[in-house]
Design a protein around this nucleic acid. Structure first.
Lengths: 342, 342
DNA sequence: TATCGAGGGGCAATCGATTGACAATTGCGA
DNA sequence: TCGCAATTGTCAATCGATTGCCCCTCGATA
């Protein structure tokens, strides 16, 4: 006998309460309500209490749009990554989220699908919603980024651009440890399976590795990959093999995993004939046999720091332009002495 | 001789252009500008063109906050997942993003960190920003969700609530295939390593599996896990072992991976002594040896469909209340006949 | 008793865009 | 040449919250 759709609340939505409703309810003016809610102490304690109670009773929730209009502040930050499905960004996203919500800010994520054009469009679209933008591993060129930054504050992550504040990992410690381990194990000829040419981080990794290898008198070559993915790593297998090295650093773990899998398919013993080291220590790096060694960035910390710095930038409390966070080498089974297994 | 900070555009940000600027620039009134930009054809084609040109020239970008005030539409959707770092959500997020941006909407993500309380808070906070909410695998109870839905449209994903539209996978096809394969291989006693009791999907998986096992005259038991994570799976190892089954379905791939790893640690042969099947076919499921078999949901499609339905809900074009999408079994190395390896 | 000052609270303008109502212009036919 | 309708554009109110400025009240002090 019940009405068929009794459970469906879908239709009529009550308009949310405004400060005007509260004002009417308590017999004060809207401005007083605004003050009661935003400037504790400015009003008679009793009035303030009455207003607060009425607000609670009416289920008042501030309308962020309406507030944003006079203040120009939206209480929102935008985070743009090149590929949201890349496991690398997990911890970063999580760290950023935590820092943002601690500060009462809302984080908006977007994804540029590895396309510079789309990244620019997205960034511009997002800029009208947010108070500031976080660009992670941006593929834009310096000028475009400076352009964005002339509209609203921009914070770079895993990339440096003159004049723009940034939070980046210091790749040196991790690379030094890893290379040192390889050297001790007897490796002399190594390769770097590189990533996207436009990636700042790719450049840093290569340069740091190169300099160190030269310094330590090891031979090093760059092997290019076609994409920073597992497919890209698999596809580069023949070229890596042809390079005749005993160890390879891959641009990131995805590429390393692809290569690792392909080695297995072709019965190339890892780590016996080839040691493989990735970057980022993403989810799943420890899953294969052999488990992948990797150079880990403190990504969640990077996310947090980036948000916090952006927020302090919004306050006007700008610090220096760059924050460095240390990487470290996570050694797993994919590394051993060359030809250890005959 | 350059100024030290010449490259730093940080400081003075020019205020963005408004329709008033355009109006002044072209000698018409602001309302005309608004019409030119929003109602093509309403104005003299020549006027419209002039206004559009001026808008471009001044780099005009609409202020979404200002627009939201009179219209009540923000052009934004909110997506809440229980844990943003869970690889399960990758494809879902990506599909949702694609559908949203196709429609010119911006997607806001949030994460409830597996906590019902936080989920409610987050949902409420988000609601004032967005036109509609997508709740993925929500841990809230039906009443809370109906409450949210009385404020703004809500769309459920991977969960059903009376009266609320939903997009969910149909777990039957995948489970049927998987169980059928196990049966043919000779398995008779299986276990379900269950997930969070509050998870609707967990309930569906268990119930479907149970009914089918009973129907096919196989014995089945539920083994509880403490968390839907790799740790949770590893931790359940002893209980699974004690259950004396030859095959186990795990609530999701994370749990399955945890269990798989623990089997290896304890030298329990998979799939020889125990076949393992997960759900979701997440990134990395194919990485371990043996590679994990899994029942896959079309997550990216689910994300897309959910957004599209929510959008049509906003239009008033509401369809039915439920959309089902088919799952399928992805068979890999973690499944074989029992005791195949003696 | 007159004056001063501080605390408490209201008024009204403002942010940027939208939109219903209305006014001005134009063109056309009679 | 006049009138009418269609076309084109403007006015002004509105959305919800903020905030500078001003006024009122009341107690304290001279």
């Amino acid at each position: 006998m019940d009405q068929p759709d009794a459970a469906a609340p879908a239709q009529d939505r009550k308009a949310p309460a405004t400060i005007y409703d509260i004002a009417r309810h308590t017999g004060v003016s809207p401005s007083t309500v605004s003050r009661a809610l935003n400037k504790p102490g400015r009003l008679n304690p009793d009035t303030e209490r009455r207003i607060r109670e009425a607000a609670k009773e009416l289920g008042y929730r501030i309308n962020p749009m309406a507030r944003a209009l006079p203040t120009g502040k939206t209480g929102t930050l935008g985070l743009i990554v090149s590929d949201i499905t890349n496991p690398v960004y997990f911890d970063l996203v999580r760290g950023a989220e935590r820092a943002a919500s601690e500060a009462g800010f809302t984080l908006i994520f977007a994804d540029s699908q590895e396309s510079g054009e789309l990244e620019l469009t997205t960034a511009e679209r997002l800029q009208s919603y947010v108070d500031g933008l976080l660009l992670v591993a941006s593929r834009l060129d310096d000028r475009q980024i400076q352009g964005l930054s002339s509209v609203k504050p921009v914070m770079m992550v895993n990339r440096e651009v003159p004049g723009i504040p940034a939070v980046v990992p210091d790749v040196r410690p991790g690379i030094t440890d890893a290379l040192d381990q390889l050297r001790r194990l007897g490796h002399r000829r190594i390769a770097y399976l590189s990533g996207p040419p436009l990636s700042w981080l790719n450049g840093m990794r290569w340069k740091t590795l190169f300099d160190l290898a030269v310094e330590w008198d090891m031979s090093i070559v760059e092997v290019k990959s076609t994409a920073p993915t597992r497919e890209g790593g698999a596809e580069a297998f023949q070229r890596v093999k042809a390079a005749g090295v005993t160890a390879v650093f891959a641009y990131n773990d995805l590429v390393a995993l692809g290569l690792l899998r392909e080695c297995r398919e072709h019965r190339i013993d890892v780590p016996g004939r080839l040691s493989i080291i990735g970057f980022d220590d993403i989810f799943g790096a420890d899953l294969p046999t052999p488990a992948l060694s990797s150079i880990k960035s403190p990504l969640s910390e990077i996310g947090e720091k980036a948000v916090r710095r952006l927020l302090s930038e919004l306050d006007g409390t700008q610090g220096g332009t760059e924050i460095l966070l240390q990487t470290r080498f996570v050694s797993r089974e994919s590394v051993a002495g060359p030809h250890e297994v005959q």
